[in-house]
Amino acid sequence: MGNLMHKRRLTPKEIQEAVSQQTHELHEMARSLSFWLNGVHYPSEGEYLEYVVRSYLRRRIPKRFEISTGFISTLGTSRPTSGALEVTRNVSRQFDILIWDADAFPPLFRADDFVVVVPESVRAVIEVTKCLDAAKAREDLRKFDDLYELYSPERQRFRPYTAILAFSSKRSMTSLLQMLERFYLFDSNVPIPLRYHAARIKGRDVRPLALPGFIDAVCVVDQG
């Protein structure tokens, strides 16, 4: 009986082309949308781009994960000197896409694709934009920066993957990286000692200290 397993060596070009097909699919969906809605109703186009990305992701991730839009929230308790138990609520800003583990963690609130979920359930947080400029990038970075307050030391092992996904940008990737550097050096809410510790070890082949406010990726579909 012969060997039923078929092996073939793949070239780097073949691998690149296979991966890029998925990017082309997403780009073509966005371009088709732009044709129909250009100059008609810009807010609807932005909302539909979020829907396009959510639909795209649903076809590619395990069923245990839900893809929604909404907020991340925590409840905390403390007992001050008065002795009365105090409960505090901490809520993030709204994110375009939350990928969360629906098997292990029920939502705090859900209405169709809109959810409020606990930090431990979230696996990825993505902001989607049609065209990424400096103002939009700073706005998104501030939203991610707030995650530092939600992921306390006991929750750091649940830190989600964070990303900005843009379909185009008026700025080069080099310019965007420089803007990221300036933001984390001067504008971030993460305590300064932690920021500089993360920057100091970033050049090594290890992941920086787990800082939920630090973004993992900025992807511009037509650039990289």
Rank of each mutant, 00 (worst) to 15 (best):
G2E: 15
L4T: 15
L10F: 14
L10E: 12
T11V: 11
Q16R: 15
L26N: 05
H27P: 05
M29T: 05
L37H: 10
V40H: 09
P43S: 09
P43K: 15
G46T: 05
L49K: 11
L49Q: 11
V53G: 05
I61R: 11
R64W: 08
S68T: 03
S68L: 04
T69G: 14
T69S: 15
S73A: 11
T74H: 04
P80V: 00
P80E: 01
S82H: 08
S82R: 11
T88I: 07
R93Y: 06
I99N: 03
W100R: 00
A104G: 13
R110H: 07
F114A: 05
V118E: 09
S121P: 00
S121Q: 02
V125K: 00
V128F: 00
T129F: 05
L132S: 06
D133F: 05
D133A: 03
R138V: 09
E139Y: 07
F144I: 03
D146T: 11
E149V: 06
E154T: 08
R157V: 03
Y161C: 07
T162F: 02
I164V: 07
A166K: 00
K170Y: 02
R171G: 05
M173C: 07
L176W: 00
L176C: 00
R182Y: 06
N189M: 12
P191N: 07
P191C: 11
G203Y: 08
D205R: 10
V206C: 15
F214I: 15
V220F: 04
V221C: 01
Q223C: 00
